[in-house]
Every structure is written in C-alpha cells, then in structure tokens.
Amino acid sequence: MHSKPSGWRIAALGALVALASSSAYAGGRLLATGGGIPLAGAAGGGIVPWAVLSGYSADEEHGLTGAYTRVETDDYTLDAFALSYDFYNRVEVSASRQTFDIGSLTPALGFDPGDLKQDTFGVKVRLTGDAVFTRRPQVSVGLMHGKNTEYLIPSVVGSRRDSDNDFYVAATKVWLTGPLKHMALLNITLRSTRANQIGLLGFGGDLNDSRQTMFEMSAATFVNRKLAVGFEYRQKPNNLSFAKEDDWRDVFAAYFPNKHFAIVAAYADLGSIVLPHQSGFYISFEGSR
C-alpha cells in the first residue's frame, strides 16, 4: 500500500519483458544453469548467491539478465530490481536497487520512517569447475558493494556506515544422478560481512563493527528439467542492540520454462526485523538474453 510506481520502475519492467521475449541471445549453457538473480543480481537461489553465473552465456558469449523481485512479509514489503551481465561464463557484474517498505513501523516510531533503500553493485568471478560437468564443484569468488541511499533510519538504530563491501566464496555442485534418481544441487557460500539485514539497515553497529564470516547454503532437487525445489539458509550477523537480527531461511521453487525466462517463488522465514516473526512470500520474475 506504500508502493509508488515510478518511471524507472516501469522502464525496468519493460526492459525485463523485452529481455524475456528477445530472440537473439547467448544460450550456450544448459537450461537452469544460470540459477536466478533475485535481490542483488548475483546468480543464485532466493537468498544465497551461488558459484554459477547469471544467464546462459558459455565461453564465447555474454548476456544480460534482469529481475524484479518482491517479498511480502507480515509487516513489510521489499521490492528489488536487479540487472546482471555475464561475460564468457567467467565474470558476472550485477547491480540492484532495493526498496524496503517499513511503513508499518509508523505507530511504534511516532513518525513515518519512509522506505529503507539500498543500491548494490557486485562482481563475481568463476575460478574453477563446472557445476554440472566436472567432478570438483564450480567455485567462484564475489564482491558485493552495498550503499544506503536513505540513511536516516539505519543511523538512528545504530548502524556505523552507509556503505560497505561483502566478500564471498561460493561452491556449487550438481549431481546428475542425485537422491531418488533426481538431479540435485548443493551450494555452500561463505561470506565476510558487516551488513545489517543484508545492508538495508546499514553496515556495522554498536554490538559489533567487525567483519564476520557467515555460512550460507542452498540445496535443491530437480523435479524435471524445468523445475527445481529446495531450501536455503543464510546466517546473519547481529550487530545492532536496537533490533535483534535472525538468520534467514526459505523453501523455494524455481521454474525455468526456457532460457529466456525464469520464476523463483519462495516462502521465506526472515525472523525478526525490528518486529518479530517476519515470514512470507517471495517471488522473482527474470528474463535473460
């Protein structure tokens, strides 16, 4: 109810549709190997970046992926527009604009806090391996830069800075013949971070202002070539005395009808975000070319 559709949002949606319906595309990789690019634009599951790179570009291709993601929890909504560009299945650059509507905190605060806003910029490099074909997992390292474009609320609740970098290493392995004969995927990511609520509440805080290494994982099984279901876990720091931060988890389904389009839907338990028990639905629409 607080969302204000603006020009660039509509333009971004238009670009997404154009991407999804475009016929010229980089399609040298197998279906589903680009994962999704929800939230910050780095290819992965719903809340965890994976070692795979966005889209379907193989070694001599490059390609763009765009996504619109919406999360609706009991008290909040999060909208994210993300773009991701993969060069040669080697380097992925990504950017996103995230808007977290906390209007429901108005009664508690006595004023309308507006939205939390964050822009992100990321780079991910594939170091080794191919998630599907090599025995060893695919391993990538990434940097994710976050910058709050509205910093009043984060500073009030004790955040120490409005921008910072996360560093992560991710390993993804696909088993063609996984449990119960289905294709399966496991991803493990270690992230060095100071972000509060993935950066939406700034970086660092009164309780802790140094980097911590957080454990994240996704496990999925493919029902068929186009549909994967799985769960994820993302450990989070707890830097602010004002508001306890919980680890995130979700169960998700990702549908890849073709190499141009994907939908990731999830039920996410985000724990306490100032208000307790934030859980709800999550959906991401993605287009690649």
């Binding site: 088993w175 013949t177 449990p179 496991l186 876990y233 680890d247």
Partner: peptide, 20 residues
Amino acid sequence: MGRPIVSVFCGALVALALAG
C-alpha cells in the same frame, strides 16, 4: 533457533553424499 536448522542441513548433506 539454530539447532533444528543445523540438523536439517546435516541431513541434507548426508543425503547428497549418499546419493552417488
């Protein structure tokens, strides 16, 4: 809150490891 989650993960890891 962490415990049940951890055991689910371990279960999943074991399941994947046994898959082969």
